[in-house]
């Protein structure tokens, strides 16, 4: 399978200037690709566009077919930088986790999630603990492409390694295409087969400013 973003352009309705202009990107199954860029260059916006959260000009296709996931599971899943924003504060962690798919208990253990955490509220867990949940939630069997937007930026080094080892292992096992977005060049170079610099694929005139 191949995910392709063709001529993606994006600007906020209130602004005249394009943040992303004529950007082309592709990602194959089983491929781990990294995008590196400075803070504020539009990486997160691109992630949201690719996974259908933001609308943009251009086309996003999977094997040539436009990806219009409405009322059905989107095969392109995004893991956000701030997990706490993606969790309903009035839901228990087990409801949050099982919203996406029936996660088996082995995988829960593998991710270092303790059973007692499942009965807690999101505000009772730390950022790292919450991020484990949001990664596991995104790894549904129906997920074909996974976009990780700075998912370990707020975590300590040990947790970072644990999470990346698991994500890359599962992505390889399940043939998932992985797009790793970060400002941390060393991290991306360590994990990914291929590294792209955001400024090189983005034709926006913003970078000249």
């Amino acid at each position: 399978m191949k995910l392709q973003g063709e001529n993606i352009s994006f600007k906020y309705p209130s602004s005249k200037e394009y943040i992303i202009k004529d950007l082309n990107i592709s990602l194959k199954s089983n491929e781990i690709k990294g995008i590196v860029g400075d803070s504020g260059c539009g990486k997160s916006t691109l992630c949201k566009i690719l996974s259908g959260y933001n609308k943009s000009e251009g086309k996003i296709t999977i094997d040539g077919i436009e990806n219009n996931a409405k009322n059905k599971f989107n095969p392109i899943q995004l893991i956000f930088q701030h997990p706490e924003l993606t969790m309903n504060p009035k839901w228990k962690m087990k409801d949050i986790l099982f919203e996406s798919w029936d996660v088996d208990s082995e995988l829960i253990e593998e991710f270092g999630i303790q059973k007692s955490w499942l009965n807690r509220w999101p505000n009772e867990l730390s950022g790292g603990e919450l991020q484990r949940f949001s990664v596991l939630r995104a790894l549904s069997p129906k997920t074909k492409f996974l976009i990780c937007d700075e998912i370990t930026t707020m975590l300590d080094a040990v947790t970072q390694v644990q999470i990346w080892d698991l994500v890359t292992k599962i992505a390889k096992d399940r043939n998932i295409g992985l797009l790793v977005v970060s400002h941390d060049k060393a991290l991306v170079e360590r994990i990914c087969d291929d590294v792209i610099y955001f400024d090189e694929i983005n034709q926006s005139n913003l970078k000249e400013l």
Binding site: S51, G52, K72, Q77, F80, L85, N88, K90, S100, S140
Partner: peptide, 26 residues
């Protein structure tokens, strides 16, 4: 406009499901 409602939509949940599970308790 919250991220968790957008995420539910991305997971293929219907508007009715979102109204029942997300909106009503809040």
């Amino acid at each position: 406009t919250s991220e968790y409602v957008k995420l539910s939509k991305n997971l293929g949940k219907s508007k009715l499901w979102i109204a029942r599970k997300h909106l009503l308790p809040l």
